[in-house]
Simulated scan of single mutants.
Amino acid sequence: MKNQKNIKVGYLLSYDYSYIFTSIKHIYKHADLIVISYDADGKTWAGNDIHIPKSFFDDIQKIDIQNKIVLYKDSFYLEGMQPMELETRQRNLMADKMGTGGWHIQMDGDEYAYDFGKLTKFLNRHKYLLKNPSKSSFNFHVNFVTLFKQNSEGYFVIAPFEEKCALITNNPKYEYARNTNNGRTISLDYYLIHQSWAREDNEIIEKINNWGHKNDFNTAEFFDFWKKIDSKNFKNLKDFHPIYKGLWKELSFIPAGNINEFIASFSKKYPQKDLHLDISSTKKIKLWLRSLF
């Protein structure tokens, strides 16, 4: 696979475009290709207007010192379709833009893959799995570290870090957001920090009015619940995910002045581990031999 772009990262750009700079900082060195997709008509999946200033694209160009970043503009909002349908559609269109072959990693701008080199080392070590993705599809899930709220002293974080996030595939045929329904799915012990709900009030309102989950639950009611969380009552929260019971068990608190301090602190306490492919040695050998022909 000489000269093949094996590590491909795709971003969906929308109302929270400013977060992407923190995210790209952690993955840029180890990615072979980065595609940033955004709506040509300045629309969110809910059909609301957004404005991404020219200065954003100028700043992207400044950090792209190795010419790895491709900007992909298309009509991603279609009237009559539900937000989650549009998100899934955009992910598939972006996968097409990223091209066949390689590991497809789709991220949101507020997701931070610290020590990304550990992950790409694992993927490159198993690049033989890229030979026939339609026949041997592999999907890798990682551990979400979801930041739920921020105060002046730090971040309230959903614990334990058991929520899984579909992140990587060799066969990008998305059926629901980043989730595929093909081949083998394996969980990797890798942490992906998700800033998620740790934003200002006005940003949360914008988020819940425009994201893919807009119609999945009573977002206004959940926003009122979120606003009341503070350092005095956060320990009382148990099993509070708005859709899936048992997914968000409780909140912990990690001191940090800003997101960069949080990532630095968290990465010291929870360093990324060396990753291993959890399949039998016999199966690995068969897949490797198959890749030779």
Rank of each mutant, 00 (worst) to 15 (best):
S267I: 00
I285V: 12
N260L: 11
S136Q: 13
P172Y: 00
R184V: 14
K283W: 08
P83D: 04
K54W: 04
Y15A: 12
G99V: 00
I158L: 05
Q82N: 09
K68Q: 06
N260F: 08
W248Y: 15
Y72R: 10
K2M: 06
G10D: 07
L188R: 05
Y77N: 10
K2P: 02
H213W: 13
L192S: 03
G102L: 03
S14V: 12
S37D: 11
F217N: 08
G183Q: 03
S281Q: 14
T22P: 03
S23K: 08
P133E: 00
D108E: 12
W248T: 07
L251S: 06
F144K: 10
R290N: 12
F148E: 09
T120M: 07
L287K: 06
F234V: 09
N6Q: 11
K68G: 05
K238I: 11
E203N: 04
L287Y: 12
E162T: 12
G246Y: 11
Y15I: 12
F253E: 01
L129G: 08
I24T: 08
L123E: 04
K214W: 00
I193K: 02
M84I: 13
K273F: 02
F122H: 02
Y190V: 01
W103K: 06
Q66A: 13
T22M: 10
I60L: 15
H26E: 14
K232R: 11
S252K: 03
S18G: 03
I105S: 09
F234W: 11
G109K: 02
G246I: 09
E163Q: 14
N3W: 09
P53H: 09
N236R: 06
D96Q: 13
D278N: 14
K135G: 03
K283H: 14
I186M: 08
K284R: 14
F144I: 04
N236L: 11
F262W: 08
K149F: 10
I20S: 04
P83E: 04
K273Q: 14
L86Y: 00
L12G: 10
N260I: 05
V9E: 09
H141K: 15
K268N: 10
R91K: 12
W211L: 08
S231N: 11
V70I: 15
F217M: 07
N170H: 01
K149C: 10
H276K: 13
G101I: 04
F140T: 02
F225A: 08
S281A: 13
S265H: 07
R89K: 13
T88V: 05
N171D: 02
E79N: 14
H26Y: 15
G10C: 08
L71M: 14
D274H: 07
P271Q: 01
D224Q: 13
T44R: 07
S187H: 07
V142P: 09
K228H: 06
G257L: 03
H276D: 13
K62L: 15
S37H: 04
H241Q: 00
D278T: 01
K245I: 11
V70M: 13
E111L: 04
Y38F: 15
F148Y: 15
N170W: 00
L119Q: 03
P242R: 00
S37A: 15
T88S: 05
E79F: 11
I65H: 11
W45M: 12
L86P: 02
P172E: 04
K43S: 02
G47M: 05
K127V: 09
S134D: 13
D16R: 03
D115Y: 09
I254M: 12
G99N: 00
F234T: 10
R290A: 13
K29I: 05
F21V: 07
S136M: 10
S152R: 06
F116P: 00
